[in-house]
């Protein structure tokens, strides 16, 4: 079956069991799901439904007990730890509920971290890129601040810039607005929507309906199964944030133009 839209990630019959002493926790019980390029997916479900487990597997932080996971057209499910680390540093961007910035680093240094682990040399060009990303998320004037000196919303913006720095195939967000008030949440969601409009694939875990409403597709999970999978047309109705959407799209697209670090997914892996 060849889908019409190219897929960024495809999960086939994914099973994940946790072994807690004698008890086996069956977190995922055979999930098959596709994620198309450019989609904005919200994963929902009560706690224990397996949404976080799925996100961790999609983020290559963990390996499935059985089943397959294709990122692009590579089977990631059989890779070893080092290879997974490499995949994470090149193709995946993470946004966490608690921002997870490194407290000892400044804003710019935090944004640089994924590049560091790609094995990039930090030079003028990467610096430039970090600066423009900081600019894009609206933190151009706080480059040398430490995370502790920033508000929650600002920290999450830094985290978003960090998730973008390696131009990932997919951005995985784990309740990105969970620690923010509703106004800041809206700002962050607008930012994510803009990124999605600019072509970024986003998979987001949330349990708030009004946050999920920003997504194009809502996947509900229960007990390790997909319960429902619907397109959310409301998101397309939402007026595009007029402010600097066009500029953002342009800058996000041009950021990696002709970039040597950028590798097409799938055909160059050893």
């Amino acid at each position: 079956m060849q889908p019409a839209v190219p897929l960024v990630a495809r999960v086939v019959d994914l099973v994940k069991n946790y072994y807690l002493e004698e008890v086996v926790v069956r977190a995922l019980r055979g999930i098959t799901i596709d994620f198309a390029v450019g989609d904005f997916v919200a994963l929902m479900g009560p706690s224990g439904s397996g949404k976080s487990t799925l996100l961790n597997l999609l983020g290559c932080l963990d390996r499935p007990s059985s089943g397959q996971y294709f990122l692009g057209d590579q089977d990631v499910s059989t890779m070893d730890d080092d290879e997974l680390s490499d995949i994470r540093s090149r193709y995946i961007g993470f946004i966490f509920q608690s921002y997870n910035l490194l407290a000892q680093y400044t804003v710019v240094e935090n944004i640089e971290v994924p590049l560091l682990y790609q094995g990039c040399r930090l030079d003028e060009r990467t610096r430039e890129r970090c600066l423009s990303l900081a600019e894009m998320v609206g933190l151009g004037d706080r480059l040398d601040h430490r995370p502790m000196q920033l508000s929650g919303g600002q920290q999450q913006r830094v985290a978003i810039a960090r998730a973008l720095v390696n131009d990932p195939h997919v951005i995985l967000a784990d309740e990105p607005t969970g620690n923010l008030d509703s106004r800041t949440s809206d700002e962050i969601m607008q930012l994510l929507t803009q990124l999605n409009r600019a072509g970024k694939t986003i998979i987001m875990v949330t349990h708030e309906n009004d946050i999920a409403a920003w997504a194009r597709r809502i996947v509900r999970m229960r007990d390790g199964h997909v319960e429902s999978d619907v397109r959310n047309d409301r998101s397309t109705d939402r007026p595009a944030p007029a402010a600097h959407a066009a500029g953002l799209t342009a800058s996000a697209n041009s950021l990696w133009g002709g970039d040597p670090y950028r590798q097409p997914l799938g055909n160059d892996r050893p």
Binding site: L61, S85, R88, S89, F94, N100, L101, L102, V113
Partner: peptide, 13 residues
């Protein structure tokens, strides 16, 4: 936690 963050961002062992 810092170790976890770094690992998520692509740090190898």
């Amino acid at each position: 936690r810092e170790i976890g963050i770094r690992r998520a961002l692509g740090a190898k062992r």
